[in-house]
Computed example of a mutant assay.
Amino acid sequence: MTAQPPGTHLAQLNIGRLLAPTDDPRVAEFMAALDLVNGIGKRSPGFVWMMEGSGEPGTGNTEAKIGGDPQSVSNLTVWEDVGSLEHFVYNTVHKRFYDRRASWFELMARPHFVMWFVPEGHRPPLGEALERLAHLEAHGPTDHAFGWSHLKQAQLWKTRACTPIAAE
């Protein structure tokens, strides 16, 4: 377990593969909620930065296709601290969509969520985030790349997380 080093912020990457293309009715409810959920995140205490897409309403960052896959989506954000991210994930409307992720996303057999500390002011590119995710998959949780259980100050994930649907 690790504590947040002074002078750092917490970065996180969450990736997924939609069950259908972004314009398909099967994922319409998820797509329609992106602006709402992202807007709440951006207004949340401790929010620092979010990787943006085209800026078109209802698209979030769905243009960043991992490996060219048109159904891949990613969310890359930076937060002041663990508590700020944890509050957004588990104590806002985000939790309703998190609980229903199996309605819109394929089950992933590989890790799809990673966190790491970045120097204050750093905005990690997607390539850096994907490298962290690959490191987590190859080496398990380390100070270089980790999940909630690696953070001694993270608590909400223990009681508020829903049943895992993918390897974490």
Results as ranks from 00 to 15, higher is better:
M1N: 14
T2L: 10
A3E: 15
A3R: 14
P5S: 03
P6Y: 05
H9W: 06
H9Q: 01
L10M: 07
L10Y: 03
A11I: 06
A11W: 05
N14G: 08
I15L: 08
L18F: 01
A20E: 11
P21M: 04
D24E: 15
A32F: 14
A33Y: 10
D35L: 09
N38I: 02
G41A: 08
G41S: 04
R43E: 11
P45D: 13
G46V: 00
W49G: 04
M51A: 14
E52L: 14
G53F: 09
P57M: 09
T59E: 00
E63K: 15
E63T: 13
E63F: 15
E63L: 13
K65P: 01
G67S: 10
G68M: 02
D69V: 10
P70S: 11
L76M: 02
T77M: 11
W79H: 06
E80R: 13
E80C: 12
D81A: 07
D81C: 10
S84Q: 10
L85V: 06
E86R: 01
E86P: 01
H87N: 11
V89I: 02
V89A: 00
T92A: 11
V93M: 04
H94W: 08
K95W: 01
R96G: 04
F97L: 07
Y98L: 06
R101H: 04
E106Y: 05
M108L: 12
R110I: 08
P111W: 09
P111V: 03
H112D: 03
F113I: 13
V114E: 11
V114S: 08
P119A: 15
R123D: 00
R123T: 10
R123C: 04
P125L: 13
P125G: 15
L126P: 00
G127P: 09
A129V: 10
R132K: 10
R132A: 09
A134C: 08
A134D: 05
H135M: 06
L136K: 02
E137G: 01
G140R: 15
G140I: 06
G140Q: 13
G140S: 13
T142R: 06
H144E: 15
H144P: 07
F146S: 00
F146K: 06
F146L: 09
W148V: 11
K152E: 14
Q153A: 15
Q153T: 13
A154C: 06
L156G: 02
T159I: 13
R160Q: 08
R160W: 03
A161P: 03
P164A: 02
